[in-house]
Design a protein around this nucleic acid. Structure first.
Lengths: 349, 349
DNA sequence: CAGGGTAGTGAGAACGTTCTCGGTAAGCGG
DNA sequence: CCGCTTACCGAGAACGTTCTCACTACCCTG
């Protein structure tokens, strides 16, 4: 790099004061007379001085930077959550260091390590895998506060969490369909989500939603039918295929719930291509509200997640913990509620 | 913050070597015998040592961090561009420091200042205002490489740029409509875009697209009609209103081009609410392809921008300039081409 | 006028690395 | 056995700030 510009020493020399005094004038700490402050500021402006944040951070022990680790910023869900995070943390004087894991656990480990070495004041993590949290536990042990969003991780009880009550959200969607008279209700969900299993930390939203779906059915006296559960990869085409398979079974569902909005686009397209009239021949519910859901015909009924708020709450959570500092603060767990927005794709005729 | 953990000195003491040697063993530079390296590594693992990146960066002069400044990460356009940036820079060992300006020039100035003080190795900027580039010029003068994306800024000739040929893209869209026999072609565009004016740097995409629209019309012997230019704020509702106004004129357009995808959602909705059959009664073209454009009926014809590639190219551009270092590299200007994707909203019956 | 508090300043340590330089021991050719 | 090279390592400087401490005026109080 180039000569890197003038340092505080240069400014002090130019102003005819000690470096300590120049630092006080520019940094806004300690006592400086108005006259010398002005002299120092003038000298700094003259030389084009830029504070070296690295040196400052080494002394103060704070970088005024937080890390944000997500699987994919291009996903509108994480993008808006990220916006929520920055909207809260930026006014508080914090910058955001961003990492994309692409869902790869190793990438997440590396990201956490690098951020930790860069001495971020805390991290907000949307975990890649629910099962492995050793690296997060390490970070916390090293004094880096961790806030988990959207996904809980096993083995990190010290972390704050901000999540959405996915079980309840899915159950409400199912209840809505039951109320409309549906009995054979299908679901399109992401691969790797077990239908049964103990209720505990370390499950992904899609899995939790699937449980909410199953529980709601049982509560209505309907035993969940494996044949009505369509498993897909996390992309539109896969969801499209899964939906077609579901609709081609001997006893096809009269309603389908999608556990994600990407999956919903595939399912919607499948219903269109199959020539099924919605909601008469097939009712459809998506997850996560997006602008397009009111442009399609019929409009799509969705479970609307408070995505932006997820970000703001997580940001606030992290700020609180950073401000606390003592490390004695017990972990907080925020669970936000999603809202069912009924539209044409499920309304009764 | 907590005691901040063991330092290199502690590791060296534990391993019974000098700090310089411990640094060599852990940092992978200089000469170290296999045996001592192992001793140092063992001691480091034992103590739970984390390299202090701040101290390292102070010496090496590189933070392995780049800054990215956009107006809104929640906008899918910037979100995918950002994804492109990280996908290129992360493998090269760079982290991304993100800032949202919300379109505010002062916020952009502050962001650039802070990033510069944090000693990022370079910045990628989607500018808030095309007219003011003094702060960017300053940054470049201070040795911080700048790559502009999507929007050109006046007064910063030293910056690399990666943009999309918006003029040509809009012209192609208009040509498509002319070919279909349309003569009264309207446009919905963002406020603040002059129809005429000299061709020069410092114009925003919407303005450039509007010029492309006007030029294409003139080339076909049609003088652009002010009454066919709908101006809106950058949101769906405003575009909705502007479209309705356009359609309510005495001689309404038979086709409408939107200079942005957010505006397109509003226009599409307006056409629906007005009960206009597309493409028979109104042809519509949007900007930027998104998943929903193939879910609506009719499917939306769009100008597809290479958004992801915009990010990757910008990332590569910045990496190249950082690697160069000499500062003698002449600025590169990459202009990517958009592609018209014809769909049901414009196809002839 | 003595005593004590306070605003302002300077000198130097400290943060935790990497870099520079010099020194020691081992290996090797003659 | 001598001289030369090379691998390895240590001591200390350097990066550019903030923090600690001490010191000097100066003002105020009694």
């Amino acid at each position: 790099m180039t000569g890197n510009g003038p340092s505080l020493i240069d400014v002090a020399r130019a102003a005819g004061v000690a470096t300590a005094t120049a630092g006080r004038a520019l940094g806004g700490y300690g006592q400086v007379s108005a006259r010398t402050r002005e002299r120092v500021l003038a000298a700094a402006a003259e030389l084009g001085y830029r504070t070296n944040g690295l040196a400052r951070s080494m002394i103060t022990g704070s970088t005024q930077t937080i890390g944000v680790v997500v699987t994919d910023v291009a996903n509108p869900f994480f993008a808006t959550a990220l916006r929520g995070i920055t909207d809260v943390t930026h006014p508080a004087g914090f910058e955001v260091l961003l990492a994309n894991t692409g869902g790869d656990l190793d990438a997440e480990r590396r990201a956490i390590t690098v951020m930790s070495e860069k001495r971020v004041d805390g991290v907000i993590v949307a975990a890649a895998q629910p099962g492995e949290g050793a690296h997060l536990k390490n970070a916390i042990g090293a004094g880096v506060p961790v806030v988990l969003i959207d996904r809980l991780v096993r083995g990190v009880p010290e972390a704050d969490t901000v999540t959405i009550d996915n079980e309840r959200a899915a159950a409400e969607a199912v209840a809505h369909l039951l109320e409309l008279g549906h009995r054979r209700i299908g679901v399109i969900t992401e691969a790797g989500a077990p239908v049964r299993g103990p209720r505990r930390r370390g499950l992904f939203p899609s899995a939790v939603r699937l449980r909410g779906y199953a529980d709601a059915l049982r509560e209505a006296g309907i035993e969940p039918d494996e044949a009505l559960i369509g498993v897909a990869r996390y992309d539109r085409e896969s969801a499209y295929d899964a939906t077609l398979r579901l609709l081609a079974t001997p006893e096809p569902p009269t309603a389908v719930l999608c556990t994600d909005n990407v999956l919903a686009t595939g399912a919607y397209r499948a219903a269109q291509d199959r020539g099924l009239r919605m909601p008469e021949e097939l009712s459809l519910i998506g997850f996560d509200d997006e602008p397009w859901t009111t442009l399609v015909r019929p409009e799509l009924t969705v479970v609307e997640q408070p995505t932006y708020e997820l970000g703001t709450r997580a940001g606030q959570q992290l700020l609180d913990r950073i401000a606390d500092g003592s490390g004695t603060r017990r972990p907080h767990h925020v669970e936000l509620r999603a809202k069912l927005v009924a539209r044409g794709s499920t309304l009764p005729r």
